[in-house]
Design a binder for these strands. Structure first.
Length: 942
RNA sequence: GCCGAGGUGGCGUAAUUGGUAGCCGCACAGCGCUUAAAACGCUGGGAGGGAUUAAAAUCCUCAUGUGAGUUCGAGUCUCACCCUCGGCACCA
């Protein structure tokens, strides 16, 4: 049977919607609840690809269901239209970037319309239009007015291929996010937005947002808060000081040198003797790209000779180094190095042979059932030893198997008052194993342990000295019987020791003997003057006070660099007086137009705008001789940081949005977009909104209530689509062959839309959905006028409830599965009424809007199907209706019984006893216990 | 390395949030319609096994990355481990 003519149906449906003005949202409507559904607007790249369909056609389903459920839905569309690709494409095709962009948008509008999405085109915003960027500039000036936009000289990331600076967020693994070229570092004077001032709030306000954990976590990581202290180290004999930042002030007694970043300005302020060598090192590091610096395996550095710093805790003089493992841009650009407790410092100290002083000793707390300390008992403290004993000739070690408990350890024991740890260890070894010819090889790290001592029935807090012995021969005394009764010794080869040992403290000790490393955990302080013996975490703040430091919080996030040395962007509305001082362009001159006479080809000399005669003349004419324009344009992420506000009043000439409408419509109820924007656009937009909130320009301080990161459509081969792989899916082909509705339904069916999964495109998928739609058409042809079967109507109502709930949580795949199930049911019916069919078509409308409109007409429906209200939720199972209850014996299914929802337990048991399999399983025994969940399950336990 | 999200048939997925594992599709197989094919329709299927049988129906065991545990009952909860994807990473 032939299917429907989708092209004809699509055309007619879209004309109908336009003539009815269905999708012109009246934002002032007071009767309906406003609902703002936003999908990240597309970049004007040219062709609409399958990802665009995924982004817009699927969210349109939600817009349509919401509307049918009575909401006043704003579902806008626009274009992110400034940006580098326009310039690159224009260069390639010898066009103007503007021409290229506007041609693309025209094409994309047509393609977007073909989706049958319910966009309100009257609210379209285009970021490259002067009417829009006037307000981008106005907002920038507002930020500037309040010190949130500032100009500063700073080391910045420069992409040599794109010939522009980049924001930190646009550098991925040391390379340009756009073209993959390794970035270089330059010192330039550029415009920044003070996002760091909002770091704390961006972090805190994340907490209550109902976003998926992975999105929040990515933002938290990007903001990168760490709490610590700033501590001042004096320079010996020079009356100067250097401030360091550390998160581990508790380890300060172990700080054995100080490291400055090579770019640290302090280097030029102190005197040292090896200037040549130091300059050479600084020059070398400056030459390296960020990627080279992070990829180099070995640490490098140089000592400043003839100068030293004073550790404020120990008062000892310690050397000062320059090393590029310390970053100039984080903290104070200087650190106190604690090699014993920091991996990087450890590596550096090993290479340059610097002292390593341990000041934190690990503490282990019993965690098993039998050794977890009892909360109400006091701890009995005592010194103890752990002895590792090596065989006289094999690579094997003495372990004790304790009798009666699953407990295997090294030799351990207490230390009596008159004993040294070594004496105690020797005594224990001889007593427990009889071996007597011992040679102490070395002392190992001390450690501590809190545990419940089961034989003694008390909490114990043991302080272990650790000693490493080797036997010189195998001579042995007899082991006394009382020791033999406690444990049995045995020799264990090196490779089996770790898995054989039970106590965590001893495992740690063994591992640190195998491979020396920094201990970065917390524990008990040692060798730390009056702080020795205290818990390292708990002593932190006291130590900071004692050394005259102060608590400090640092963030990883940097201020947002917004200058771009490119043409096709929003001009920065700033001019410079003859002294070079920046001044805002007064609002009456906005929009500050992008000149059309600039040579937009990138060049080494600077920004393309510098080549515009018109811009220079404009500035001189308005401000006077000697005044100069700003030549840089704004990062396009500035344009997109506020577009969702402009949708509310896209044509307002007097304000960037509309105060009253913002109050009613913001925050955005649900924002759908790509996960690649989690730490860029999404973070920037949150910052922007908070800043505007502080300037009393917007009604709240979080712009997006819900956020959903959409997944990615992969090629049919399961790989990411790319031209070089030849696996790119062109949506237009599928639309032409199967119709827009089939493509929409397939994309919605491909996987759960509420998580950012990767979904391979199935080449048969759209055809399958077309078959589904064809079956609906055939069913509709069978529908008859006249009385309908209530039974079918109630099935449809139940499906409606399921579809509604699934759409609400962005699970369109299961919503469609429910529609398919419903279709299967309806097809089975001998007779089907037009009324039931119309109910079905209403449910179908959000998914296949064109076909649903067509069928609605055919079935005699009035107006548009899209004006219908969503069916009320299906009734709960009627009282007295029977449901299937699973009969289990010992948790295993043995059959099913039909029961009313109100059936009692004894009725259920009686019914179950009619099932042969239940009787067999019971085997004549009486159930010891009966678990009955009405309507669900009956479990007989024997 | 740290953090986060996951791991279910040949494939995409589902499971009322602790209650029949595999809904809905794809692909596949058999059958029907047809001169034939396409289209369409019907039927089937997690894996393994047993008995009866012409066949069907029926029955049992094992199955949600691996191993333990909690529970009357675990894909779902707890612990350990393995793997995949994503974020951060010389951030002191």
């Amino acid at each position: 049977m032939r299917g429907f003519d989708h092209e004809e149906i699509e055309k007619r449906a879209q004309e109908k919607w336009a003539s009815l003005g269905l999708y012109q949202t009246d934002l002032k409507n007071a009767a309906k609840k406003p609902y703002y559904l936003l999908s990240e607007f597309p970049y004007s790249s040219g062709d609409l690809h399958i990802g665009h369909w995924f982004a817009f056609a699927v969210t349109d389903i939600f817009a349509r269901t919401k509307r049918m459920q009575g909401a006043n839905v704003l579902f806008p569309i626009g274009f992110d239209a400034f940006g580098l690709p326009a310039e690159n494409a224009a260069l390639k095709n010898k066009l103007d970037p503007k021409e290229w962009t506007y041609k693309n948008m025209e094409r994309m509008r047509g393609q977007l319309r073909s989706m049958g999405a319910s966009f309100d085109w009257n609210r379209e915003v285009v970021t490259c239009e002067p009417a829009y960027y006037k307000w981008t500039q106005w907002l920038f000036l507002k930020l500037m007015e309040h010190g949130l936009a500032y100009r500063a000289e700073a080391p910045v990331k420069w992409c040599p291929k794109d010939q522009t600076v980049l924001a930190n967020e646009q550098v991925i693994d040391g390379a340009c996010e756009r073209c993959g070229t390794p970035v270089e570092e330059k010192r330039l004077t550029q415009w920044f937005l003070k996002i760091t001032e909002y770091a704390e709030r961006l972090l805190e306000d994340l907490e209550p947002l109902p976003w998926r954990e992975e999105i929040k976590e990515a933002q938290r990581a990007w903001i990168g808060k760490s709490e610590g202290a700033r501590i001042t180290f004096l320079i010996s004999g020079q009356n100067k000081k250097i401030e360091i930042f550390t998160t581990r002030p508790d380890t300060i007694y172990g700080a054995t040198y100080v490291v400055l970043a090579p770019e640290h300005p302090f280097v030029s302020k102190i005197n040292f003797s090896n200037e040549k060598e130091v300059e050479k090192y600084i020059a070398e590091t400056r030459k390296k790209t960020e990627r080279e610096r992070s990829e180099q395996k070995e640490k490098t550095g140089v000592k400043l000779e003839g100068v030293s710093a004073i550790n404020p805790a120990t008062k000892k003089e310690i050397p000062i180094y320059l090393a590029d493992y310390v970053l100039a841009s984080y903290g104070t650009g200087a650190v106190m190095a604690v090699p014993a407790h920091d991996e990087r410092d450890y590596e550096f100290a090993k290479k340059y042979d610097l002292p390593i002083k341990q000041v934190v000793e690990p503490l282990f707390v019993g965690r098993r059932e039998d050794d977890t300390p009892k909360p109400n008992l006091p701890f009995v403290e005592r010194p103890a030893i752990t002895a590792i004993v090596k065989h006289w000739k094999d690579d094997a070690y003495l372990l004790l198997d304790w009798k009666g408990v699953a407990w295997t350890t090294f030799i351990t024991g207490g230390v009596e008052e008159d004993q040294t740890p070594q004496d105690a260890a020797c005594r224990e070894i001889i007593e427990e194993t009889g071996y007597r010819n011992l040679r102490l090889v070395k002392e190992l790290t001390r450690y501590h342990s809190r545990f419940f001592h089961t034989p003694k029935q008390r909490n114990q807090f043991a302080h272990f000295s650790s000693l490493y012995f080797q036997l010189t021969d195998g001579s042995q005394d007899p082991v006394p019987p009382e020791e033999q009764a406690k444990h049995q010794y045995r020799w264990v080869p090196r490779e089996e020791v770790e898995q054989t040992l039970v106590p965590n403290g001893q495992k740690f000790l063994w591992n640190s003997l195998q491979r020396e490393a920094a201990y970065v955990g917390s524990g008990i302080l040692a060798d730390s003057a009056e702080f020795s013996g205290r818990d390292s975490e708990e002593a932190k703040s006291d130590i900071v006070k004692a050394v005259g430091g102060e608590q400090a919080t640092e963030f990883r996030i940097r201020d947002w660099l917004v200058s771009r040395q490119r043409y096709w962007g929003c001009p920065i509305p700033v001019v410079y007086d003859p002294e070079g001082k920046p001044h805002p362009v007064p609002p009456e001159h906005l929009p500050w137009l992008l000149p059309t006479d600039a040579d937009f080809r990138p060049n080494e000399k600077g920004s393309p705008l510098a080549s515009s005669k018109e811009l220079k003349e404009r500035v001189e004419k308005l401000f006077g001789k000697g005044w100069l324009p700003e030549y840089d344009t704004l990062d396009t992420f500035v344009d997109s940081s506020w577009y969702f506000m402009r949708y509310l009043a896209p044509k307002n000439e007097h304000d960037f949005s509309d105060k009253r409408l913002m109050k009613k419509w913001l925050p955005v109820d649900r924002y759908s977009g790509g996960s690649e924007h989690t730490t860029m656009h999404l973070l920037y937009a949150r910052f922007f909104y908070k800043a505007l909130y502080d300037l009393a320009l917007v009604p709240g301080d979080e712009p997006f209530l819900e956020r959903y990161n959409r997944g990615i459509i992969l090629g049919p081969d399961g790989e990411k689509m790319s031209k070089s792989k030849g696996n790119v899916i062109n949506p237009d082909e599928f639309v032409k062959k199967y119709g827009a509705d089939a493509v929409r339904v397939y994309l919605a069916f491909i996987g759960p839309y509420n998580e950012a999964g990767n979904y391979p495109w199935n080449l048969d998928g759209v055809a399958a959905m077309r078959k589904f739609l064809d079956r609906i058409v055939r069913l509709a042809l069978r529908a008859e006028a006249g009385p309908h079967l209530t039974h079918l109507s109630s099935i449809a109502a139940r499906a409606a409830a399921k579809v509604e709930a699934d759409c609400e949580r962005f699970k369109f795949n299961t919503a469609i599965a429910a529609l398919m199930t419903l279709l299967n049911e309806l097809e089975k019916a001998k007779k089907i009424s037009q009324k039931v069919m119309r109910e079905f078509v209403v449910l179908l409308a959000p998914f296949a809007p064109h076909l649903a409109e067509h069928l609605w007409n055919e079935l005699g429906g009035k107006g548009s199907v899209h004006q219908q209200t969503w069916p009320k939720a299906g009734p709960a199972p009627l009282k007295g209706e029977t449901v299937e209850v699973i009969a289990q014996v010992n948790g295993k299914k043995r059959g099913a019984i039909r029961l009313t929802t109100t059936a009692s337990e004894s009725e259920a048991v009686a019914a179950a006893k009619h099932i042969a399999a239940v009787v067999t399983a019971l085997g004549g025994r009486k159930p010891k216990r009966v678990v009955y969940v009405p309507g669900r399950i009956l479990n007989l336990v024997i």
